[in-house]
Design a protein around this nucleic acid. Structure first.
Lengths: 218, 218
DNA sequence: TTTACATTCTAGTAATCACTGGAATGATTA
DNA sequence: TAATCATTCCAGTGATTACTAGAATGTAAA
């Protein structure tokens, strides 16, 4: 058979369809947003700072690669990831990127004002401390995202409300703030604010998707 | 800060560099070949059925994304994956593709003449049977690839030599043949040949990379 | 029906990409 | 030195991509 080549080309082409989805920065951002739960086109567009129309076309790419599903809800159309594997792959791709790309490492270092990130193997000890109430795990994402899924023992105070609700937080314990993941800056802002106000605050780079993948493989 | 957008764009752009590598069919094929061990440009070009020059430029992309390393060995330059994570990501990408893309599922079904694939959860039982010698695990890849890494208890008979070396195989036990992975057709050919010659032969879709990832996560 | 949400079509721009061919350059071995 | 392996530069083709804009279409709630 000399058509072995044709068959192979066809197979790799199909796999490349998935790869293509992960080759556009904006599409990656949309995937990360969808990792936080289902969202409307408008929300996605706003959060990713692009037009509704462009969002729509990126979502179309995602739909054609079978990576997202849609559901009509009244006037809105909700988009969600088709599968946990999609969120997992996003985490694995950005993890490999962080592992290999020096430029990305440098950019991430600039974001963290202090070297106060908790790293992956601290997950167990964080969990233990949170269970005992020794630290407060703080979810600063919008509350819908918290309601969809959150880290164990986490409390929700969206970044927008944080300044008004500071009184809810204790000053005698460490506050571990997290948001959507390493590329979301909300937790960074939260930590900055908390430190200004005299709290002990730590930034956790992991989001729900990162936590879920790490938990399922250990 | 209104430059939060700029920072985010920069971060996602970096991750997309990795995604871009996985968006070209030929690059995927090169990655799969490199999963079998280090290879020269010439070998890669021949195996992927493309020109040396084009191979060289694809490898350049891979190098710029820090996913491969090179080493000079005499006249040749050897390429190898920078990291086990790269092989793992390849497996995860093609696994997700097989999970989500109906076209790919159909194409793969056509390849397997019989529905005689061993599936993932049979790994343990295959291992047990191989250990006891109840089945023969047969590696039909070129012997350099076998020497670089192979499945536990596997024996090496490259596809090219199989017809001449049939006598080495027993007729009273099942022969489980594998090659580079689900997109490599060598094991399919081997099984076809073995069945013609009266052997009991089964096709294992997993290659070394797939096996390694599955073993490390369970 | 009007309004809001969402997609689709067309059309266009600017950029990038995969691939080919020719010619030049290096590095290494014999 | 010549031969081999590999990369690079140039130039060019054809295709695809990301994005924007305007207009039309569809779907569902008020």
């Amino acid at each position: 058979m000399k058509d072995a080549r044709k068959i192979k080309d066809l197979l790799y082409e199909q796999v490349a369809r998935i790869g293509k989805v992960f080759s556009s920065p904006k599409r990656l951002e949309l995937i990360e947003l969808l990792c936080q739960g289902e969202k409307t086109v408008e929300t996605l567009a706003r959060e990713a700072s692009i037009s509704v129309k462009l969002t729509s076309s990126h979502l179309r790419e995602l739909r054609m690669a079978q990576l997202v599903e849609t559901e009509r809800q009244g006037k809105n159309i909700l988009y969600r990831l088709a599968n946990k594997s999609v969120a997992d792959l996003w985490v694995q791709v950005h993890t490999l990127a962080e592992e290999r790309l020096v430029d990305l490492q440098l950019a991430l270092q600039k974001i963290a004002t202090q070297p106060d990130d908790l790293v992956a193997n601290d997950r167990e000890s964080l969990l233990k401390a949170a269970r005992k109430g020794e630290v407060v795990v703080l979810d600063v994402r919008p509350s819908e995202e918290y309601l969809n899924a959150h880290l164990p023992f986490a409390r929700s105070i969206p970044l927008e409300e944080l300044r008004q609700r500071l009184a809810e937080l204790p000053k005698d314990r460490s506050i571990v703030a997290y948001c959507r993941g390493p590329y979301c800056l909300m937790a960074v802002d939260a930590v900055t604010l908390l430190k200004q106000e005299g709290y002990t605050a730590i930034h956790l780079r992991e989001g729900v998707a990162e936590w879920a993948l790490a938990s399922s493989t250990t």
